[in-house]
Nucleic acid binder design. Structure first.
Lengths: 208, 208
DNA sequence: CACTATACGGAACTATCGTTCCGCTTGTCA
DNA sequence: TGACAAGCGGAACGATAGTTCCGTATAGTG
């Protein structure tokens, strides 16, 4: 986005010399916007109006659009971080000695995350299991690949039904998130419910 | 809705005598609207624009609103029929001798229905598992109660985990529908996928 | 055939949201 | 401290969708 490096010019440092450093208020506002977006999107998901984010950040919409070209871009900035952390955690689990426990932890953590944060939920929901080859965002690829490894290892250990693909598992995990989040449940009971749902899913995944 | 019986008056049958019978074109148009709504909503779900329904019925929106007070009312007219038929079928299953087979059939049929018809899917999704006491529509009550019986019988037969409530099961069935319908899957593979998901769910539901 | 209650069509209205535009403000630097 | 690029706010715009309104058309009746 930035047209060139802000410092070191070959010509004299006059006023017409390249772009100045970022102004302090701009940096403050961007931070405030990210914090507000984090709050708003985690509560209301991607359907939250953009004005709500600007309002809560204490800036006008114009300022929001100065920092992020579209609503999508702002949303992605938030949700990418969430997915990255899931991916990192999944990669870590993929190196654990017990493949069954690792897969179960992975599933539990994804579900718990989606149940707690509506933005993550919305992102997973619309992600669906789009053919992963067509997904360009590298953080999604990381999560997908780590999930693949976790599933394969659990299958090789004879713990999980060998006929399941990662698409199947993804659909089931996603379904578990959605079932637990469904419209009218009061949010307070979701964690407990989703725990039980993961239990049932896990039992259903067992080989034999 | 009709204020009174259209025929037999005590006074003379003058022009100012009660409402006439429904005009033929009105009846035709209502039928066309229902047929169009059935098509459109089953393909696109409740988010289909109302104009699309009117267009496909070959009438103006004004006509649509003459017959149905809101979009909701039209949608409900369609979806109520679907839920009624699920409910009737569930009640029938509740009288079958094999409780396990009955519950499995019920689950399979709900999922298959939701995967095939987006209106049913949307309705179940937003229905969620709202406390059933608060649901007034009698056809939903029927489906819920039949589901309860099916679950209880399967639990008493020792087939299904006794700690599951109908809310749990509803959330799981709903989740299965949602997982299988997720955004980007090509619809052609949904039936197969959902069948496998029901298999896993069923395995997970087993007692011990 | 004429008359009128009924029904029809679709333009217009309202509300919501994402996005753009532009006049004003302010941080930064000489 | 003065000049000005960078940044800001928020009104206005455009798109979408549900709903209303009203002038026109017509089915049914005598």
């Amino acid at each position: 986005m930035a047209p060139a490096a802000p410092h070191q010019r070959t010509t004299a440092p006059t006023a017409r010399d390249g772009p100045r450093a970022e102004r302090a208020d701009a940096r403050r506002n961007r931070a405030a916007l990210l914090a507000a977006a984090e709050e708003v999107f985690s509560e209301q998901g991607i359907s939250a109006p953009i004005d709500e984010v600007a309002r809560r950040a204490g800036v006008g919409v114009g300022t929001l659009y100065r920092h992020f070209p579209t609503k999508e871009a702002l949303f992605e900035a938030i949700v990418a971080a969430r997915i990255e952390s899931l991916a990192t955690r999944a990669e870590q689990l993929a190196r654990e000695p017990d493949p069954a426990a690792a897969l179960l932890s992975h599933i539990s953590e994804v579900v718990a995350g989606a149940v707690a944060k509506k933005d993550l939920f919305d992102e997973l929901a619309r992600w669906g299991y789009e053919p992963i080859e067509r997904v360009h965002a590298e953080y999604k690829q990381r999560l997908w690949r780590a999930g693949e490894i976790l599933l394969r290892r659990a299958q090789q250990a004879g713990v999980v039904r060998p006929d399941l693909t990662q698409e199947d598992l993804t659909a089931m995990v996603l379904g578990t998130c959605e079932g637990a989040c469904c419209a009218l449940v009061d949010a307070a009971r979701r964690p407990e419910l989703s725990k039980r749902m993961v239990e049932v899913l896990w039992a259903g995944l067992q080989a034999r």
